[in-house]
């Protein structure tokens, strides 16, 4: 009990004093996961919308694959990305293993199917005749797609939340491709694991609280936007 109490007190001290190390880890986490979510938003929404709006052979198979991808285990993604960018791997020449870039790639791979699956479902959930209604009002195909995306903005925001929430709290892939290098590729989750292992519970608790606060703040902001409608 003493341990926990002391940990929490020290954690708040670290937070209030804006400890430089804690701040830099937090900032890096935000940058990496934010960028990864942003990338996944582009790829996920465009492919999700394209799959939803077109009929083609094997569509159900593709949808099943996307839905499976929504639960992609981060360690598997980490393993896959590591192999790809390993010195002797197909993308070894990029020399990005153990860099934040590798972490962004891995996290984007984790978030993309989540965003894709949710946007696919969102577009499919719109009334079937809405597409025809928009086209019949004189929209070009691009204008039609844009209106549909705007119509499903609420579930798309949910997709952003789910994607971001998934990657900021993810550890397996980040530690494998990032390497948890101090001041370079150390993020909230990898740092928490390490500090816990070392017995530095105060720091670990502080990092844990920040992670929770971060997730809460982002989701709170997005929920505000969502509920405003």
């Amino acid at each position: 009990m003493e341990l926990i109490l002391q940990g929490i007190i020290k954690a708040f001290h670290l937070l209030i004093s804006f400890d430089p190390e804690v701040m830099s880890i937090t900032w890096l986490s935000l940058k990496i996961s934010g960028t990864a979510t942003f990338i996944s938003l582009f790829i996920g929404v465009s492919i999700g919308v394209a799959v939803a709006l077109n009929d083609f052979f094997g569509k159900r198979l593709v949808i099943s694959i996307i839905n499976t991808g929504m639960g992609l285990p981060p360690v598997v993604v980490g393993l896959f990305v590591t192999i790809m960018i390993w010195r002797s791997g197909p993308f070894g020449f990029l020399e990005i293993l153990y860099t934040p870039h590798a972490m962004i790639i891995a996290q984007a791979i984790i978030a993309t199917p989540i965003v894709m699956g949710i946007s696919l479902a969102a577009i499919q959930n719109l009334p079937p005749n809405l597409r025809l209604q928009i086209l019949s009002l004189g929209a070009s195909r691009l204008q039609m797609v844009w209106v549909l995306v705007k119509e499903s903005r609420l579930p798309l925001l949910a997709a952003v939340m789910a994607g971001f929430g998934g990657v900021i709290s993810e550890i397996g892939a980040s530690i494998m491709v990032g390497g948890n290098i101090k001041g370079y590729s150390r993020v909230l989750t990898t740092a928490t694991v390490m500090e816990t292992g070392k017995g530095n519970f105060d720091l670990a608790i502080a990092l844990g609280i920040i992670l929770l606060l971060l997730a809460f703040t982002i989701n709170f902001m997005l929920t505000q936007i969502q509920q405003r409608q």
């Binding site: 009334p127 005749n129 025809l132 209604q133 928009i134 019949s136």
Partner: peptide
């Protein structure tokens, strides 16, 4: 042409903007 469907199929915005969409 303009088509009016059985269901109103209005977009999630104000009436004014709905009427302006075409």
């Amino acid at each position: 042409i303009a088509v009016v469907f059985q269901e109103p199929l209005l977009l999630n915005m104000t009436v004014e903007k709905n009427v302006a969409v075409g």
